[in-house]
C-alpha cells in the first residue's frame, strides 16, 4: 500500500506543519504595526532623520569589526584561562580549589563596568605594557590590550563554571573505566573526560560568547572605538540620539540572535543524540 502522509485535518490550525509561515508573517505584521504606531506618536515631539542617520553606517561597521575582534580574542583567551581555573577547582589540592573558588566568586559579585574601570584606570595606569604590546607586533594597541584582558579575565570566571559543570556531568563511571584500564588521572582527563565534556559544554559556551559580545558594549568607557562608543559619539555629535541608538540595538541583535539560534539548535541536536 502506498504511503500517504497523515492527514493534518484534525490538527489545530496554528500547529500544523506549514503554519510557521503564517506565524512569522503575523508577528512581522504586528511588529510593523506597533513600531509604526510608536514612530508616529513619537514624531510628534521628536523629528526623526533616518536618512541622515543611515549615512553614518560605515562608522558603525568599523565599530562592529572592533567589537567582533575584541570578543573573539577575549573569548579564546577566556576559554583557556577558564579551563585552567576549572581544573584548579576540581584538583585534589584543597588550596588550589579554594583559590579557584575565590576567583570565581569575586568576579561574579562585581559589575563588569566597575571591573573595566579598575583594570584600565587602575592597573592600566600602574603597569606599563607598552613593551609587551610592541613585542606582539602592533596587532593590538594598549587600549585594546587592556580591553581584551578585562573581558578575558572577567569571563574566565563564568567559563570556568561552565567547564566545571561540563566535566562533572560526564558520568563518574567513565572515569572509573578509564582508571581501571591503567590510565593516570591526567590521561583519563585528557583522553576520556575532557573530550566528552567539550561536547556537552558547546551550547553553554556559545551562550557565553553572546554574553561576551554584550559585555564588550561596556568597553566604551575606556574609549575603545567599538559599536557603543561609535553610537555615543555620533549621538553626541549629531544629536539624533534615537536613530543612532536604535541602529546600535539592531547591530547587536545581528550579532547575537544568530548565535542564540545556533546555540538553541545545538542543544536540541545534542539532546536528541543522547536518546540512543
Amino acid at each position: 500500500m502506498a504511503y500517504s502522509a497523515p492527514s493534518q485535518l484534525h490538527v489545530p490550525l496554528m500547529e500544523r506543519r506549514g503554519a510557521w509561515v503564517i506565524r512569522v508573517f503575523f508577528i512581522i505584521g504586528l511588529l510593523a504595526l506597533m513600531l509604526g504606531f510608536l514612530h508616529f506618536q513619537l514624531s510628534k515631539s521628536y523629528t526623526f532623520q533616518w536618512k541622515l542617520a543611515f549615512n553614518f553606517l560605515p562608522y558603525f561597521n568599523e565599530g562592529l569589526l572592533l567589537t567582533i575582534k575584541a570578543s573573539l580574542v577575549a573569548g579564546v583567551v577566556g576559554v583557556v584561562l577558564g579551563l585552567v581555573i576549572a581544573l584548579a577547582r576540581l584538583s585534589p589540592f584543597m588550596q588550589l580549589r579554594d583559590l579557584g573558588t575565590l576567583y570565581v566568586h569575586t568576579f561574579r559579585n562585581v559589575p563588569f563596568y566597575v571591573f573595566v574601570l579598575i583594570v584600565y584606570f587602575g592597573f592600566g595606569r600602574a603597569i606599563d605594557v607598552r613593551p609587551l604590546v610592541e613585542a606582539m607586533g602592533g596587532i593590538v594597541d594598549e587600549r585594546l590590550f587592556w580591553a581584551i584582558a578585562a573581558l578575558a579575565v572577567f569571563d574566565a570566571a563564568f567559563i570556568s563554571e561552565i567547564f566545571r559543570a561540563g566535566i562533572l556531568s560526564v558520568h563518574a563511571t567513565q572515569k572509573e573505566a578509564a582508571r581501571s584500564m591503567g590510565m593516570s588521572a591526567t590521561q583519563a582527563m585528557r583522553y576520556v573526560i575532557l573530550p566528552q565534556a567539550f561536547r556537552n559544554v558547546i551550547p553553554a559556551l556559545t551562550g557565553e560568547l553572546i554574553a561576551l559580545v554584550k559585555e564588550s558594549a561596556l568597553l566604551f568607557v575606556i574609549s575603545l572605538r567599538e559599536l557603543t562608543l561609535v553610537a555615543r559619539e555620533l549621538a553626541a555629535h549629531e544629536g539624533n540620539t534615537f536613530e543612532f541608538y536604535t541602529i546600535l540595538a539592531v547591530y547587536y541583535l545581528i550579532l547575537t540572535l544568530p548565535l542564540a539560534g545556533f546555540s538553541h539548535l545545538l542543544e536540541k541536536k545534542l539532546s536528541l543524540d543522547d536518546r540512543h
Partner: peptide, 23 residues
C-alpha cells in the same frame, strides 16, 4: 528573546536618550 540578546546599556541608551525625548 530580543531583550535577552541586547546589552543592558544599549536598552538603557535607547530608552533614556531616545524614548524619553519622544514620550
Amino acid at each position: 528573546h530580543t531583550i535577552r540578546n541586547l546589552p543592558f546599556i544599549v536598552v538603557m541608551l535607547v530608552f533614556f536618550f531616545g524614548l524619553r525625548k519622544g514620550v
